[in-house]
Simulated scan of single mutants.
Amino acid sequence: MSDGPEYDIDFREHPEKYEVGRGEEGVFKVEPYKGELLDRWGYADRETADEGGEAIYAKYREYRDEGDFPGMDMARKYLQMGYTRAMRYARYPGGQKYVDGEERDPEKWVDHDKREAALVYAVWWERVENDEVYQRAKSEHRERE
């Protein structure tokens, strides 16, 4: 997805305009999903990740039951982002991967709470990635792209 006017689109109304993209691309832009998922997402510690992962996965199931692939994929992206963001804070003091423009070496484990949160999100993320319904919907959607 590119930055541009396509983000003024309601992707539930126009799923054909949704592009899968890479990784977590679009999580803060693609509506109405950002509005439905962002408040459920958090990674401060294991408890927050448990609550967030469960809530986002519940939304994923709703999207799946409705045949809403953009929603399914956005839920997957929020679960992935829970893992990657928490892991960044787990391995870099203050989550700062770069200092003065230079990438610093990761540490093991700077923030154990964030590591626990990352591991929780990894389980939810994997559950979606391995869901046959998700895989089939993703393939079908990409064929139409």
Rank of each mutant, 00 (worst) to 15 (best):
residue 1 M to H: 13
residue 3 D to Y: 15
residue 3 D to P: 14
residue 4 G to T: 05
residue 8 D to A: 09
residue 9 I to H: 11
residue 10 D to W: 13
residue 10 D to P: 05
residue 13 E to H: 14
residue 16 E to A: 06
residue 22 R to E: 14
residue 22 R to G: 08
residue 25 E to S: 10
residue 25 E to M: 08
residue 26 G to P: 11
residue 27 V to N: 03
residue 28 F to S: 07
residue 32 P to R: 12
residue 33 Y to V: 09
residue 36 E to R: 15
residue 42 G to N: 09
residue 45 D to Y: 11
residue 49 A to V: 07
residue 50 D to N: 04
residue 54 E to M: 04
residue 57 Y to Q: 09
residue 57 Y to W: 13
residue 60 Y to S: 05
residue 60 Y to P: 01
residue 61 R to E: 15
residue 61 R to W: 08
residue 63 Y to W: 14
residue 64 R to T: 12
residue 66 E to C: 01
residue 69 F to H: 07
residue 72 M to I: 11
residue 73 D to S: 06
residue 73 D to G: 05
residue 75 A to S: 10
residue 79 L to S: 03
residue 81 M to N: 15
residue 82 G to A: 06
residue 84 T to K: 10
residue 86 A to C: 03
residue 89 Y to W: 13
residue 89 Y to D: 09
residue 90 A to D: 12
residue 94 G to P: 08
residue 95 G to D: 10
residue 96 Q to E: 12
residue 98 Y to S: 00
residue 98 Y to W: 06
residue 99 V to I: 01
residue 100 D to L: 00
residue 101 G to H: 14
residue 105 D to E: 14
residue 111 D to Q: 07
residue 112 H to I: 11
residue 114 K to P: 00
residue 115 R to Y: 13
residue 115 R to P: 00
residue 117 A to F: 09
residue 119 L to R: 10
residue 119 L to D: 14
residue 124 W to P: 01
residue 126 E to R: 09
residue 128 V to C: 02
residue 128 V to Q: 03
residue 132 E to S: 00
residue 133 V to T: 06
residue 134 Y to D: 00
residue 136 R to C: 03
residue 137 A to W: 12
residue 138 K to I: 04
residue 141 H to G: 02
residue 143 E to I: 00
residue 143 E to K: 01
residue 144 R to V: 08
